[in-house]
Design a protein around this nucleic acid. Structure first.
Length: 151
DNA sequence: GCCAACGTTGGC
DNA sequence: GCCAACGTTGGC
């Protein structure tokens, strides 16, 4: 899951109550569908920092809620306000995300060097999804091989 | 700031 | 249903 650290970084999430943040602002149907249809509480999440000086994986998190309507779509003062959505039929859904571990940053350039990750959706040319699935093999490689356990 | 790639919109 | 125009994403 991608977040711009200027908006919500791993540190911001760790500082939040229960180290949990609502994943507001997703306004892409495919990304929404992944949250709405494919996520289960406890699923692992790679917390990715995008649109910043050092894009890359910055932490490990987990899905902390089932999907529910993104409140910012109804907030006229929010940059994510969507006048075409309505309370009875919310267009945008989100999940809560709980950060469990801040990791040393794994830069995008490092991810691209890994033979095991050539098929990652995140790394596909032109990919613009902010929420996308990770395979078990990719997850294991990243969390067990790339992320050095401290100590 | 640039620009490739993509998603959405809307006329037809 | 097609597709041009437009707006956005996001790395560089």
């Amino acid at each position: 899951m991608k977040s711009e650290p200027d908006e919500v970084s791993v540190d911001d999430a760790l500082a939040a109550s229960l180290q949990t943040v609502a994943w507001t602002g997703v306004r892409n149907y495919q990304a929404r569908n992944f949250m709405r249809d494919s996520m289960r509480i406890g699923d692992g999440v790679l917390f990715y920092h995008s649109s910043c000086p050092q894009p890359g994986i910055a932490g490990i998190a987990e899905v902390a809620s089932t999907a529910y309507p993104d409140p910012t779509q109804f907030d006229k003062k929010s940059p994510y306000y969507d006048p075409q959505s309505d309370q009875e039929h919310p267009r945008w859904m989100l999940v809560d995300v709980k950060v469990t571990q801040k990791t040393p940053l794994i830069p995008l350039s490092t991810l691209r060097e890994q033979e095991e990750l050539v098929d990652m959706i995140l790394l596909r040319k032109g990919n613009r999804l902010s929420v996308m699935p990770v395979t078990t093999a990719e997850w294991n490689f990243i969390t067990k091989k790339l992320i050095k356990k401290n100590g």
